[in-house]
Simulated assay, not measured.
Amino acid sequence: MREHLRSYLHFLTLEKNAAANTVASYTFDLSRYLRFLEEEGVREIGRVREPDVEKFVARLRKNGLSPRSISRNLSAVKMFHKFLTGEKVSARDPARMIDAPKLSRTLPDVLNPGEVDAILKEPPTREDLGKRDRAILETLYATGMRVSEIIGLRKSNVDKRGGFVRIFGKGSKERIVPIGGSALRWIDRYLRDVRPKLSRHGSGEEILFLNARGKPMSRMSIWNIVKRYAVKSGLQKHVHPHTLRHSFATHLLEGGADLRAVQEMLGHSDIATTQVYTHIDREYLKEVHKTFHPRG
């Protein structure tokens, strides 16, 4: 069964041009699925039946996975079996009729502008790494980048004269996003005062943001930076890099930005993904009404 998994991952990488993080996620989820099938005595992927997939979903639920995690795992299983059916490895698709658990539509956490400002002011900018961290935080909030996008950002992707940044998102899709003056000023300070020192230690090449060893930063490093300064600012909210992305989108909409423009800047292929932020905006409007209207 493992050779079929390798074939599918090869298909995702070469034919679907899936991002490395996507392939890694499918590898993890489908490896767990195949281990389960082996434990159940299923040795050939073509012999998997619908009850086997149902038992796998039940096992995930018993193990305490959230409905969202179960849904992600089942989606990977469905895509895998669809591929196998198309390749004539299986005569029928045992996962096609399995329903994913219903997901509650939760609104993403959002910071208000004052809370964002408090986080941005926390890095100790008299220190080299403090300057770098300030530039990272400013860039995340100014552009709405994902973590995977900012760690791959190159010096040449920042157009300081034009005030834009070229971002390569999921599936290597390129988008051009404006970047404000504040973020550009901090990037400029970092490039002038800090990056030349860091680059002497490692092989970061053209990558914009480097760690103390001169190498490209990891996803976890960015998470830790955001979390550390959020805690230091005194915020009681659970803040992570995507919180700055959510805040970026929400503040644009609250300021009157067009939904399609926000979709373009976030790199969403489907506007329905962006529309979740209109719900946040409505909550903001309700709060304004409640606070200021005589009958609120």
Rank of each mutant, 00 (worst) to 15 (best):
G152E: 05
F209A: 00
S69G: 07
L259V: 07
F209T: 00
S221R: 06
R161C: 04
T27H: 13
L259T: 01
A230E: 09
E39N: 09
R68I: 10
F28K: 10
V262T: 03
K121V: 09
A261F: 06
D270T: 07
Y141Q: 08
P94Y: 04
S199D: 05
Y26W: 12
G64Q: 09
E206N: 09
G64A: 09
G171C: 03
F83V: 12
L5K: 10
I280D: 12
L111F: 14
N211M: 06
W186V: 03
F28M: 05
R219F: 04
S75C: 09
E54T: 09
K88S: 14
L153G: 00
L266M: 11
G296P: 01
R47D: 12
S69Q: 11
A118Q: 14
A24F: 06
Q275N: 05
E287H: 12
Y33I: 07
K62A: 15
S172T: 08
G169A: 11
I271F: 05
D29K: 01
S221Y: 06
A257N: 05
N73S: 14
F56Q: 00
R146P: 00
A118N: 12
Q236D: 13
T278L: 12
M145H: 01
N17V: 02
P241K: 05
L30G: 03
M145L: 12
L235I: 13
I225H: 03
G162N: 11
H240W: 08
G255R: 14
L107Y: 10
P101A: 14
K197S: 11
N112D: 15
R161L: 15
R175M: 12
H268G: 05
S182K: 11
R175L: 13
G152M: 00
R295E: 08
F28V: 08
T273S: 15
H4W: 12
D117I: 08
M97K: 13
A95L: 02
I280V: 15
P51E: 15
L198R: 05
L252T: 04
R126G: 12
V165H: 01
N112L: 13
E44P: 00
T250G: 05
A19G: 03
H240V: 06
R6N: 15
S25T: 11
R35I: 10
S148G: 15
G162C: 09
R195S: 02
I207A: 04
L5E: 09
P178G: 07
F168C: 03
F36M: 09
R61C: 06
D117T: 14
A142I: 00
A261I: 14
K160N: 09
R219G: 01
A257K: 02
M145V: 07
K82S: 13
V48W: 00
I222Y: 02
Y8H: 07
K237M: 11
E149K: 01
P196E: 08
G181F: 04
R32V: 07
R32A: 15
I179Y: 02
T250C: 04
G41Q: 08
T278W: 07
W223Q: 05
I187R: 00
H201D: 01
Y284Q: 05
A212N: 09
V116A: 12
A20W: 04
A249Y: 03
